[in-house]
C-alpha cells in the first residue's frame, strides 16, 4: 500500500523534497556534504556577510554573539562561551551556519562557503593554522576543546532527593534580612507607555 498508517492521510514524500528540507548533521558527521574551504577564503566571506555583527575577528560587536575567544573561562565568574570555548561538536557549527546564517539571509551559502566560514571561525579561535583546508574528509581532524564538557541532566541525582518532603512551616530561620534590591540596579523598563 502507498500508505503505512491506518488513516491513509498524507502522501509519500519524494526524495527531492526530503533532500531539500533534511539538512541536519549529527556529531558523527552523518549529513556532512562533500566540499571544502580554508580560513583565507572564509575571511573574505566573513568580512562581507558576517563581520557587521560578529566583528572582523569573530569577536562580536555590541550585543551580538562572540564566536571566538573565551578559552578556559567556563569556570570563571563570567564565562565567555563561543564556538571555540564552549561548542562540543563542529558539526553543529556547520549545520547551524548552513541552515540559519547569515542572519536575515539564511540558507544562502554554498557548501564550500560554509566550510570556509567554519574554517575561519576555527582559525579565529586558534584551533587551526591558516593553511588548513577544512573538508568533509578533514572535518574530524579538528579537536573541539570543550567536547567533553557536557553531562546529561543529573537533577534527579543531585537535587530532587534533597528538595523533597515536608518543608519547615514555623520558625524556619532566626533572622531575615534584605541582601539585594532590584531598585539599586534600576534596569527595569519604564512602564509609562507601550513597550
Amino acid at each position: 500500500p502507498a500508505f503505512a498508517g491506518k488513516f491513509g492521510l498524507g502522501r509519500p514524500a519524494l526524495p527531492e523534497e526530503i533532500s531539500a528540507w533534511d539538512g541536519d548533521i549529527t556529531p558523527d558527521g552523518t549529513g556532512l556534504p562533500v566540499g571544502s574551504g580554508d580560513a583565507l577564503d572564509g575571511e573574505e566571506i566573513f568580512a562581507e556577510k558576517c563581520a557587521s555583527c560578529h566583528g572582523d575577528f569573530a569577536e562580536g560587536l555590541g550585543n551580538w554573539p562572540k564566536l571566538a575567544g573565551g578559552a578556559d573561562t567556563l569556570n570563571h565568574e563570567d564565562p565567555l562561551k563561543t564556538v571555540g570555548s564552549y561548542w562540543p561538536y563542529l558539526t553543529t557549527t556547520f549545520d547551524y551556519i548552513k541552515r540559519s546564517m547569515p542572519y536575515g539571509d539564511a540558507g544562502s551559502l554554498t557548501d564550500d562557503e560554509v566550510y570556509a566560514m567554519v574554517a575561519y571561525i576555527l582559525y579565529s579561535n586558534d584551533l587551526i593554522e591558516d593553511d588548513f583546508v577544512l573538508s568533509n574528509e578533514t572535518f574530524f581532524d579538528v579537536e573541539m576543546p570543550n567536547a567533553n564538557g557536557f553531562i546529561v541532566d543529573n537533577r534527579a541525582e543531585t537535587e530532587y532527593a534533597q528538595w523533597t518532603g515536608e518543608p519547615c512551616m514555623q520558625d524556619c530561620k532566626d533572622v531575615v534580612e534584605v541582601t539585594m534590591r532590584a531598585l539599586v540596579l534600576d534596569v527595569t523598563p519604564d512602564q509609562g507607555g507601550a513597550a
Binding site: 567556563l74 569556570n75 562561551k81 564552549y86 547551524y96 564538557g149 557536557f150 546529561v152 537533577r155
Partner: peptide, 16 residues
Amino acid sequence: TSKYTDTLEDGTSRKW
C-alpha cells in the same frame, strides 16, 4: 549545545 545547556560552577554543563 550552544544554547539550552546549563553551565555549572566547575565549568561543566548539563545538557538535555
